[in-house]
């Protein structure tokens, strides 16, 4: 039968400088303390952190000579662990992990820029309608509008390409837009997203 040295003796030994006594104490109570912490926090990593902090506190208290031996080493360590678990939950309350709820969804703030399927369908429809409407414009206006809007050319480039002055290109663009609006109004077309 293995002889087990009492906790109080080990604590005394440790205070007197026997580092090995601490190792025995930690290994002896490892499972009970770890299981206790884990049962509260339900996270292996957090439980490991709290276990470590608990024993750091134990080490400091013992080394400073602030521990009064009353034969209750394990309950004392458990109390420290318990307090650290409470601290952990308090800290998490101040900085909660945000998962969103029914009232407020985080994705409404950080949603991606892309259109959803419905909006994309509407946009495609408008684009195709507009292409048909542009076909109705006189050729000179249509040419300027296509160059400006779809090819993103400047009016200077348009004037160079079409062989007309910048002012004429500007005028054709203006009339192209006016005529487009007229066609839209005439046919009661709704082009909104």
């Amino acid at each position: 039968m293995e002889l087990q040295i009492d906790d109080s003796v080990l604590v005394k030994d440790y205070i007197n400088g026997n580092e090995k006594a601490l190792e025995v104490l930690i290994n002896r109570h490892n499972q009970r303390i770890s299981s206790f912490i884990y049962s509260k926090v339900l996270d292996r990593d957090v439980s490991e952190d709290i276990f470590q902090d608990t024993f750091i506190k134990v080490i400091k208290t013992l080394k400073k000579g602030n521990y009064s031996e009353e034969g209750k080493f394990l309950p004392w360590v458990m109390r420290i662990a318990h307090n650290l678990v409470i601290d952990h939950f308090r800290r998490n309350k101040r900085m909660p992990m945000f998962e969103g709820n029914d009232d407020f969804n985080i994705f409404s703030v950080i949603g991606d820029e892309k259109l959803n399927v419905e909006k994309q369908l509407i946009k495609d429809q408008i684009d195709s309608d507009l292409t048909l409407l542009i076909e109705e414009l006189p050729d000179d206006q249509k040419e300027v509008l296509l160059m400006r809007i779809y090819r993103d050319m400047s009016f200077k480039e348009i004037s160079e390409n079409t062989g007309v002055s910048i002012n004429t290109a500007l005028g054709r663009m203006r009339y192209a837009l006016i005529n487009l609006r007229k066609i839209i109004e005439k046919h009661n077309i709704v082009l909104t997203n």
Partner: peptide
């Protein structure tokens, strides 16, 4: 059962030795 890893225990023993 939950148990602190050997690394944690090693760290604690090392910490204890280094603390004065």
């Amino acid at each position: 059962l939950a148990k602190a890893s050997p690394e944690t225990i090693k760290f604690l023993i090392g910490y204890s030795k280094s603390l004065q």
